[in-house]
Computed example of a mutant assay.
Amino acid sequence: MSTLWAFPGQGAQQPGMLHGLPDAPVVRACLAEAGAVLGEEVLALDSAEALRNTRAVQLCLLIAGVACARLLVRRGHRPDYVAGLSIGAYAAAVIAEALDFADALRLVALRGELMQSAYPGGYGMTAILGLDLTSIERLLEQVNSAEMPVYLANINADNQLVIAGSSAAMAAVAERARALGAGAVKPLAVSVPSHCALLAEPAAELAAAFAAVSLQRPRARYLSSSSARLISDPDMLRDDLAHNMCRVVDWHATLQTAVERGVRLHLELPPGTVLSGLARRLFEPGMAIAFQGSRLDTLDAMLRQEVSRSR
């Protein structure tokens, strides 16, 4: 049996998320490294006001995920598999030792800037609960147009899907979804239309920047949340990271792949607990836990127990 360390995407951010990280030397070193690379005070990025900016959000998610994962590594733990939802893939690649943290910081800063500048307002993402994929795809076909762009963005579970597009188009889909019996329609804390064709041009610009970055073969098995497949080739990993902003996230299939490959412990790195909630449906009789809200000694015990079971 194996462990999967999962890193959340945009929407999981919380004010004060960097200030609330464990007070440990490895965490402080991670914050200091990020500040030196970016040339700014990174603890200024996690205020409620700062988190209105896509760049700040994505940097906070990267830093929080890497800092807490490094803390666990320092305590003697290693993941068998890593995966990240959207921006979380960058932290996953860093912890798999495929992407240097400094390079990840620079690329993520650029990624956030490109996404924000492409769609400074009037766009976003909306979660729809209670309808299946076929129903959502039909609604998208009815609404999507050049004037009202809206696309499928995330498949988080069989009946938890996310759409992305203009605010007007998403509102039209939401109204039809409620009429079909959707259990909930929730606008996400994301100000750009991620994981659809609307971000193809920013993705191409990011890919050009990636061309100058050296990547290595992952030392932990890296699961792509776009294809739900393992990626070990550095060039394929570069493509996966650069273009994941404009590709549909199939997190449900990614978790299924992990389970089929023998993963029985899903650990969600900060911030938040959404991914572990999604995983619990698939990981029985295994476990899905979140770093946030857990004691470090409890995490130590659970991770060591899983390692001993796998031997």
Results as ranks from 00 to 15, higher is better:
residue 163 I to A: 04
residue 202 P to R: 06
residue 162 V to L: 10
residue 167 S to L: 14
residue 88 G to A: 11
residue 301 A to W: 08
residue 128 I to D: 06
residue 196 C to H: 01
residue 98 A to I: 06
residue 229 R to V: 07
residue 42 V to P: 04
residue 99 L to M: 08
residue 125 M to T: 08
residue 270 P to K: 10
residue 144 N to W: 03
residue 82 V to T: 11
residue 295 R to I: 00
residue 62 L to S: 08
residue 158 D to T: 11
residue 152 L to G: 06
residue 208 A to Q: 15
residue 206 L to R: 10
residue 222 Y to T: 05
residue 51 L to Q: 12
residue 44 A to F: 01
residue 134 T to R: 14
residue 257 T to H: 05
residue 174 A to E: 06
residue 6 A to K: 02
residue 126 T to R: 08
residue 290 A to L: 01
residue 111 R to N: 11
residue 170 M to R: 15
residue 197 A to Y: 00
residue 49 E to G: 11
residue 213 V to R: 06
residue 68 C to G: 07
residue 88 G to C: 07
residue 115 M to V: 01
residue 124 G to D: 05
residue 59 L to T: 05
residue 119 Y to D: 06
residue 161 L to Y: 10
residue 188 L to N: 09
residue 283 F to C: 09
residue 234 P to G: 04
residue 142 Q to K: 14
residue 11 G to P: 01
residue 192 V to L: 07
residue 278 L to Y: 13
residue 131 L to P: 01
residue 21 L to V: 12
residue 183 G to A: 14
residue 223 L to I: 14
residue 283 F to N: 01
residue 153 A to V: 09
residue 140 L to A: 04
residue 66 V to K: 03
residue 15 P to H: 09
residue 74 R to V: 03
residue 6 A to F: 08
residue 224 S to Q: 01
residue 294 S to H: 09
residue 69 A to P: 04
residue 114 L to F: 07
residue 22 P to G: 12
residue 173 V to G: 07
residue 103 D to R: 00
residue 300 D to N: 15
residue 142 Q to E: 15
